[in-house]
Amino acid sequence: MTAHPDPTSPGGYRTLAEMDADLVDCRACPRLVAWREQVAREKRASFRDETYWGRPVPGLGPADAKLLLVGLAPAAHGGNRTGRMFTGDRSGDFLFAAMHAVGLTNQPFAIDRDDGLRLLGTRISAPVHCAPPDNKPTPTERDTCRDWLITELGLLAPTVRAVLVLGAFGWQTLLPILAQTGWSIPRPRPKFGHGVHLSLPPQRPDRRPLELFGCYHVSQQNTFTKRLTPAMLEAVLTDAKEAAGL
């Protein structure tokens, strides 16, 4: 099952909780289903005694969030193992430490779904909700999953005031979705870059202006090489937080 693409009636869902209840049962992409379940069976040696989630990973955070973070997809042994976005891997460690430093979470770590983590006025989602091989979804998989993000934005629209996109994949996926869900995107379409900031005017009377920010992804490739440092991430998070009115 996939979400309905009409943002004025987002899948018939009245709440994000209703949407997420269907999302976690999605089996629309055969390659992703096979991979996520294979990883859940075979496991990483260090997690061999754990039961992997092995399903689509829903968004994380309150349904009335003012700030939305958009990543790429769950990690095979992170979100695909724990069932929660950016939880249980080094990318999440980096992200949540920075979010806590600027006041967007109640604690600086994310270990599992029972660790007490709360996001403050912020929700985290992704263009693709299943772990992909080599962290690379195909264009078809991206397009198949996009209706969930369209629906999510429709449900968040009454409160969301800023979006922070982690990485070029999320940026390229999100811009046409924002256009479809009621915001005006400049032409030519803005290129991704760390620290890019755009103000998007609404195209519909039930939308408010939206502040859009770009940030390098919190992948180990970026954080280990210092392409993205804690200070850089905290600076962008602070700008997005202030723009969201948090």
Results as ranks from 00 to 15, higher is better:
Gln221Thr: 11
Ala65Glu: 03
Thr105Tyr: 07
Ala243Met: 01
Glu141Asp: 14
Pro30Val: 05
Gly193Tyr: 12
Leu120Gln: 09
Ala101Val: 13
Ser125Asp: 12
Asp6Ile: 04
Thr151Lys: 05
Gly12Gln: 11
Pro230Lys: 11
Thr15Pro: 09
Phe192Asp: 10
Cys130Lys: 05
Pro74Glu: 04
Pro188Trp: 12
Leu198Ser: 06
Pro127Ala: 12
Arg84Val: 14
Phe169Thr: 03
Pro202Asn: 11
Leu32Phe: 08
Arg48Gly: 02
Leu23Trp: 01
Ala34Pro: 02
Ala76Gly: 11
Ser46Leu: 05
Gln38Asn: 06
Ala179Lys: 14
Leu164Tyr: 02
Pro186Gln: 07
Met232Tyr: 12
Gly154Met: 04
Leu16Asp: 08
Arg84Thr: 09
Arg31Gly: 08
Val39Cys: 12
Met1Leu: 11
Glu37Pro: 03
Glu234Trp: 01
Pro137Ile: 08
Leu175Pro: 10
Thr159Trp: 15
Ala240Gly: 02
Arg208Asn: 12
Gly245Thr: 09
Glu37Arg: 11
Leu166Gly: 11
Gln38Lys: 10
Phe86Ala: 05
Ser125Ala: 14
Cys145Ala: 10
Gly12Arg: 06
Cys130Glu: 04
Ala40Glu: 01
Lys43Met: 08
Met85Ala: 14
Asp25Ile: 02
Gly83Lys: 00
Lys226Thr: 11
Gln221Asp: 07
Leu212Thr: 10
Pro5Ala: 04
Gln203Trp: 03
Leu166Ala: 14
Thr144Gln: 14
Ala40Asn: 03
Phe94His: 06
His197Ala: 13
Phe224Ala: 13
Gly83Cys: 06
Arg14Gly: 15
Gln203Phe: 05
Val163Asp: 00
Ala179Gln: 15
Leu67Thr: 00
Glu50Asn: 06
Thr87Asp: 14
Glu234Lys: 15
Gly245Asn: 09
Phe109Trp: 13
Pro127Leu: 13
Arg123Asp: 05
Thr229Tyr: 15
Pro133Ala: 14
Ser91Val: 04
Leu212Val: 10
Arg31Asp: 15
